[in-house]
Design a binder for these strands. Structure first.
Lengths: 194, 194
DNA sequence: CCCGCTACCTAGGGACTCTAGGCTATGACC
DNA sequence: GGTCATAGCCTAGAGTCCCTAGGTAGCGGG
């Protein structure tokens, strides 16, 4: 009985490929087993089950994503940093739709809390915003706005939600410009008279 | 053999409830059949299959959502309209997470094209933005930015993605204020020098 | 009244998750 | 170089789900 050499690492890497090829919700134990030429049941000695596999994939993808963002942002600040952040984010989401989808699943709060990727993400995002001179709670509000916009944009674009006859890259650039202005002129309380 | 009286309408309504209770991806033919006290196979005379059911649910939820938004926006303009739009959007997403998730699935392009809800959505959104005096392609860019931000915010909030110790409602209000300023001072080409 | 349609049924195939329990190749230790 | 533990793979089987094919019961219209 030849041993194929399945390990958790190879399993997660294969799951990542499979996610990008077939979509995140097509990542299944049996599909993965097929890919390794092995029976379903064999994978349960490496991974606790489908949920466990998907969680591992999510953490893996989250780390890849923040690595790319960190590399892009390094040495830049202000608008340059924002553009680099946004570009790296969107590129990853479009290049790796399955992995990106994986980063969005709801995980055990315990797992999320002590994930180093999450900490790095927060650190880098807050660091980037430092140039705009915001203070709490505006800082948190701004982070939420940025994350939401990036996330929503990539999801909608990936889902083919932008049907209009307008170049998406140009639209995205404009959105980033607009966000930059928003951050630079963040609404103060006295302006909040709408 | 007592007839329960299953119809497409009752099926979709039950699917909507089930989606909100158990999550969109727990909407299944068999769960629905159980709910009606009927065998799985019986539903296939009302609905072509799971995909068909989900598509119907998506269109149903999309119409509910735009109805709410239209009612909220009616008679308002500018910042008032933006706030009403945003509020109705987020309220729906939070009250009906399953239905909201349903609106985000990828559907047959043919079905999307002649969905009245989609047309109304576009109409109302562009109408709301008219107050800001934008012209194409800025108008489309602005619509995309708004949709992305609203969508991303609701998804992240719904998924428990906002862990920081800051009131989400206040954060949301601030984001809407920021978007208003963004629309009011939309970046022109000559400012795009960063 | 019975004919046809519709609403429901049984039966069954195929895919997937997961558990229980068994065999074997591999590497460590005597 | 034997033997032993364990890790890596297996078969078998239960349970869930989607979906098809073909059969039957209730209900309204001629």
């Amino acid at each position: 009985m030849a041993r194929v050499g399945v390990t958790v690492e190879r399993l997660v890497a294969a799951a990542a490929e499979l996610a990008d090829e077939a979509g995140f919700d097509h990542v299944s134990i049996s599909a993965l087993a097929r890919r390794f030429g092995v029976k379903d049941a064999s994978l349960y000695s490496h991974v606790r089950g489908l949920k466990d596999l998907r969680t591992r994939l999510a953490l893996y993808a989250g780390e890849e994503l923040i690595d790319r963002i960190a590399a892009a942002v390094a040495g830049r600040s202000g608008k340059e940093a924002l553009r680099a952040f946004a570009g790296a984010y969107r590129d990853y989401a479009l290049e790796h739709p399955g992995r990106y989808a994986a980063t969005q699943i709801r995980m055990d709060q315990a797992l999320v809390a002590d994930s180093p990727a999450l900490h790095r993400t927060a650190q880098i995002t807050y660091g980037m915003l430092r140039a705009y001179g915001l203070e709490e709670p505006d800082l948190t509000d701004a982070v939420r706005l940025l994350r939401s916009t990036f996330h929503g944009y990539c999801l909608l674009e990936g889902a083919g939600g932008f049907g209009a006859d307008r170049d998406v890259q140009a639209s995205w650039d404009k959105a980033v410009d607009a966000l930059h202005l928003t951050l630079a002129h963040w609404p103060r309380e006295q302006e909040n008279d709408g």
